[in-house]
Amino acid sequence: MSDKPVTRRNFLYITTGTFTAAGAASLVWPFVDQMNPDASVKALASTEVDLRPIAPGQSITVLWRGKPVFIRRRTPEEISEAKAVSLDELPDPQDDAARAKNPEWLVMVGICTHLGCIPLGQKGEYNGWFCPCHGSHYDTSGRIRKGPAPSNLEIPDYVFLNDNTIKIG
């Protein structure tokens, strides 16, 4: 029995098989990728917000990437309250300065880190936010203090374009 033609034959079969499989595999990608955020959705990935209408102690909710974003102009009391907390008391320790670029303005994704409900403002035991779904309490810096939520309210990427405008995303 001669080995040679058999090897050559196997080589042909294996090459053909691999080549077919590789092509079929790359064909899958467009079908997967079509479900990813499309170009028109990505274009809405950043939102610019005019801060002028917001008075101290007020907050607004804007929609960013389909999610609510809380923008709160904090009062001096709220700021000092947030800064006074010792990090040891926090389930998810984070300094207030790390959460607000400008202490007056708190910008957070308004989605409870537990299971995605929207917390209510100026409620709860810490005078911050309270999630009605499963009873999570957040403080005036949006940090989790009590309840089932595992972490603080998320801070989105944002920049101050000038004193009166921020760009989220």
Binding site: P30, Q34, N36, D38, A39, S40
Partner: peptide, 9 residues
């Protein structure tokens, strides 16, 4: 125009 590979599909 917008959907990823939408034109192809």
């Amino acid at each position: 125009r917008d959907v990823n590979y939408g034109w192809l599909l």
